[in-house]
C-alpha cells in the first residue's frame, strides 16, 4: 500500500531518528512498530545504565507519527505532533532493545489520535505508554 511505503521511506529519512538508531520493524495500516537498540549515548543514569526517558520519548513520538502516516485516511502524508503525554512505568532494563508499538485509532478531518506502548524484553510490563494528538493532512 502506498501509505505503508511512504511511511517506511519517511521514517528512514528522519535525521534525529537515525541518530538514535531507530529501526522500523513493521508497518501496517495505522499501526507501526519501531525498535531502538541499546546505546550508551542514550543513558540517563550512569550508575544503573538505564536509558534516559527523553530517548524513550523520542522513540514514542516517532512511532506515533509513523502510525498516523500509515493510516489509510492520512495517505502517507506528513504529520506533526500537537501534543504527547508519556507515562513512565518503570526503567527499561539496560542492554535490551526498546520496542515501541503505536496505533492510530481515530482520524478526524483535522486530528489523528494515537496511543503507544514502549517495551523491553518483558512484554507483560510496559516501560512507558503514550497518548497523543497529531496534525492530519499536512502542516500546522
Amino acid at each position: 500500500m502506498a501509505e505503508t511505503d511512504a511511511t517506511y521511506a519517511f521514517i528512514d529519512a528522519i535525521p534525529h531518528s537515525k541518530a538514535l538508531g531507530m529501526e522500523i520493524f513493521s508497518v501496517t495500516s495505522g499501526e507501526v512498530e519501531l525498535r531502538m537498540p541499546y546505546n550508551s549515548d542514550l543513558v540517563g543514569d550512569p550508575q544503573t545504565g538505564v536509558i534516559h526517558g527523553g530517548a524513550v520519548s523520542a522513540l514514542l513520538d516517532t512511532c506515533c507519527g509513523a502510525a498516523v502516516m500509515s493510516h489509510p485516511d492520512q495517505k502517507g502524508k506528513m504529520t506533526a505532533t500537537l501534543d504527547l503525554r508519556i507515562d513512565y512505568m518503570r526503567p527499561a532494563v539496560p542492554h535490551q532493545t526498546i520496542r515501541a508499538i503505536a496505533t492510530c485509532y481515530n482520524v478526524t478531518r483535522s486530528v489523528a489520535f494515537v496511543r503507544a506502548v514502549a517495551l523491553d524484553d518483558d512484554d507483560a510490563r510496559p516501560v512507558a505508554t503514550a497518548t497523543g494528538a497529531f496534525v492530519v493532512g499536512g502542516e500546522k
Binding site: 535525521p15 531518528s17 537515525k18 527523553g54 520519548s57 522513540l59
Partner: peptide
C-alpha cells in the same frame, strides 16, 4: 544540529528532541 531534525522537508526539529530537551 542537523541530527536534531525530524522533518527534513520543512525543516523542523524532531518532536522527540524537543520533548527530551524540555524533560532535561
Amino acid at each position: 544540529r542537523e541530527d536534531l531534525i525530524g522533518n527534513p522537508f520543512l525543516p523542523a526539529l524532531h518532536g522527540g528532541a524537543t520533548a527530551a530537551f524540555l524533560e532535561i
